[in-house]
Simulated scan of single mutants.
Amino acid sequence: MDHLTKLEEMLHRANDDIKNGYYDEATNKLEKIIDMDPNFGKAYNHLGYLYEVKFKEYEKGETLYKLCLEKSPMYPSVYYNYAILLSTLGKWEELKSLLDTAMNIPGITKSTIYNEYAIMYEQQGELDKAIEHYKKCALNTLDKNTLTRAKESLERCKMKKEFL
């Protein structure tokens, strides 16, 4: 088994630990991957996710996502995870820049990125821009659940506009 295959296999096992709620075990596996190869960016993304979502250590999560972007800028998953963190923290300029970059990453799900733009604009009270991006989200998906969510979000923004 070559070096990269071994790291991918370890990452897969860490991912299974995360899915099964074994966060400490996952953390240990991910840190071991980084010890073996500090340039294996995917491990930083998964570790960032753990620190953000499971341990609520947002600053540490952000640092890890940035490391992933530096080491593996073509890895789509980091864009989704980091976008949610930046949205949570209300770091709108960084978020817009990240989303602009994400739109050009091969393999990225454009509907997901449009949805993140829309959430960003909605949270900032820019409802017309939010509506425009929820429509783009809807038009760029083949997934019925994504379509339903975009429609509900669109309706929510229209209702909010009634209060202006």
Score class of each variant (00 low, 15 high):
K136Y: 09
L127D: 01
N115F: 11
K136N: 11
N140C: 03
N140E: 11
E116P: 07
K151Q: 06
D143F: 12
L139K: 10
D143R: 09
Q124C: 04
N145D: 15
E116S: 14
C137K: 08
Q123L: 13
L127A: 00
T148A: 12
C157Y: 04
E122D: 13
Y134C: 04
A150C: 14
Y117T: 06
R149L: 13
E122M: 12
N140R: 03
L142R: 12
L147A: 10
T141P: 03
L142N: 13
Y121V: 05
M120D: 09
K129M: 11
Y117W: 11
E155R: 09
R156F: 12
G125D: 00
T141A: 05
K136T: 01
A150Q: 01
E126L: 14
L139E: 14
H133C: 09
L154E: 04
L154N: 01
T148R: 07
K135T: 06
E152H: 09
T141W: 04
H133P: 07
K144I: 15
Y117L: 10
L127S: 02
N145G: 05
N115G: 10
K135V: 07
L127R: 00
K129P: 02
N145T: 14
E122L: 06
N140D: 06
G125V: 00
E152F: 13
Q123G: 13
K129G: 02
L142S: 14
E155T: 08
L139D: 15
M120Y: 10
E116Q: 15
A130C: 03
E152S: 13
Q124E: 13
C137I: 04
A150H: 03
Y121G: 03
C157L: 02
G125I: 04
Y121H: 12
E132P: 00
C157W: 02
N115A: 10
E132N: 02
T146P: 00
D143P: 01
R149G: 03
K151C: 01
A130E: 03
A138F: 11
T141G: 02
N145A: 14
M120G: 03
L147V: 05
L147K: 12
S153F: 05
A138I: 06
I119T: 11
L147N: 03
K129V: 06
S153R: 11
K151D: 04
T146L: 12
K144C: 09
E116R: 15
L127G: 01
C157D: 01
D128E: 12
H133W: 07
